[in-house]
């Protein structure tokens, strides 16, 4: 049985819808749901399974899981987006300079990047977070720094490829400055790769935030984040598995959406790097 192309293409659409919904929830939930709904403790309904009063059940303190997971979206999305933005802000100039200038600059910068890549990203993020003291802001810094070498590496490769294009040669012959060439000729042409990589990084950043918070070295209570909710569920798995399932599914849906969207983007924007679909 052959799967129709239209259906295969719809993967990007499904991904986009998932991502959009999660971002909308992250943006709108705090507007429509009063914050204390997520912290209100219903002592008569602790670890309650899904009921009419609590559609997704409650946690060990009788707090409503639906409101917690909806409000937790804000924290998780905010941390992941800010961390990816940070890695772009540092990695983009690094990669561009390395790829465009080449020679010694490239050698030194890439040696440094390769060394950083020897540290598992999660280990690097955990160490930075432990060093700086775990809180929301330092979680962003930790994930942002840990992801920078990946981005710098990819941007450097793209910049290197584009810098050898005839139109760049032409721009140089026409007497344009290096700065102008980088901004007007190289940057626009590596943007597709940057966008694709950022989408994929965003998926990894959501997973990293969940991992850090799960280990207690990320978001701290009373902020509600998905990783923190899964961590809290550990001691009640026997009696109340939904306390782990609800935030776990939230993470999975978000990351799945980002991956589907990222795959489709790559196929659309970057036909050379086909695959993984």
């Amino acid at each position: 049985m052959r799967i129709p192309a239209a259906f295969r293409r719809s993967k990007g659409l499904i991904g986009a819808i998932l991502v959009l919904s999660v971002f909308l929830v992250a943006l709108l939930a705090p507007v429509f749901i009063p914050e204390d709904w997520a912290t209100q403790m219903d002592m008569r309904a602790r670890l309650s399974p899904p009921t009419w009063a609590h559609p997704l059940g409650t946690d060990q303190l009788g707090r409503d899981l639906m409101y917690r997971v909806l409000l937790g979206a804000q924290t998780s999305i905010y941390i992941a987006s800010a961390a990816v933005l940070m890695s772009i802000v540092i990695g983009l100039p690094l990669g561009l300079i390395s790829g465009y200038v080449g020679r010694t600059t490239d050698n030194v910068l890439m040696r440094l990047v390769d060394t950083l890549l020897s540290f598992p990203a999660l280990l690097l993020a955990l160490t930075i977070s432990a060093v700086l003291g775990p809180n929301l802001q330092n979680t962003i810094i930790a994930i942002g720094i840990a992801f920078t070498p990946f981005l710098a590496r990819i941007i450097r490769g793209e910049a290197l490829r584009v810098a050898q294009m005839p139109y760049v040669e032409g721009a140089r012959t026409a007497g344009n400055s290096d700065f102008r060439i980088i901004v007007h000729h190289i940057l626009p042409n590596i943007m597709p790769a940057v966008i694709v990589q950022s989408t994929i990084s965003l998926a990894f950043a959501i997973l990293a935030e969940a991992g850090l918070s799960f280990l207690g070295l990320g978001t701290q209570p009373p902020d509600a984040s998905w990783g923190l909710m899964i961590q809290a569920s550990r001691d009640y798995l026997d009696r109340a598995p939904w306390t782990a399932l609800v935030p776990g599914v939230a993470v999975a849906v978000t990351v799945l959406g980002l991956n589907m969207f990222g795959d489709a983007l790559r196929d659309a924007l970057d036909p050379r790097a086909k695959g993984g679909s």
């Binding site: 782990a244 993470v251 999975a252 799945l256 991956n259 589907m260």
Partner: peptide, 10 residues
């Protein structure tokens, strides 16, 4: 795709 989207601890 589902496999890569779930955190390992999940």
């Amino acid at each position: 795709l589902v496999g890569v989207s779930l955190p390992d601890f999940f």
